[in-house]
């Protein structure tokens, strides 16, 4: 199971790296944001797999935090301030 989880994690890492291309490529901020979102979700996957693979249940908590804060960046990017001059 360790190996399986590790392999799966490795595959996820590869997939994440693909997502990173999106962050790099853009072109818009929103596209990059999606890349970051993807990274977060896949990161949760990797963490959960690792939690099983290296028998470190605390990593589930790390994943929990990832999940809880997954939308913060998106919100921070898209929210607008009061009294902001319309461009």
């Amino acid at each position: 199971m360790r190996t399986l989880a590790l392999l799966a994690a490795l595959a996820l890492l590869a997939s994440m790296s693909l997502g990173l291309i999106q962050v790099l490529r853009g072109p818009g901020a929103a596209d990059r944001m999606m890349g970051v979102q993807l990274l977060g979700t896949s990161g949760i996957g990797v963490l959960l797999l690792l939690a099983v693979a290296i028998e470190q249940p605390a990593l589930i908590d790390v994943a929990l935090i990832f999940a809880l804060l997954a939308a913060v960046a998106a919100a921070a990017l898209t929210r607008r301030r009061l009294q902001e001059p319309p461009e």
Binding site: L20, V23, L24, G26, A29, R32, M33, G35, V36, L39, G40, G43, F66, A73, L77
Partner: peptide, 14 residues
């Protein structure tokens, strides 16, 4: 700047 920051956030997650 936004690209840099988003990459930085990604970096932090990673």
């Amino acid at each position: 700047p936004r690209r840099a920051v988003m990459l930085f956030i990604a970096f932090g997650l990673w």
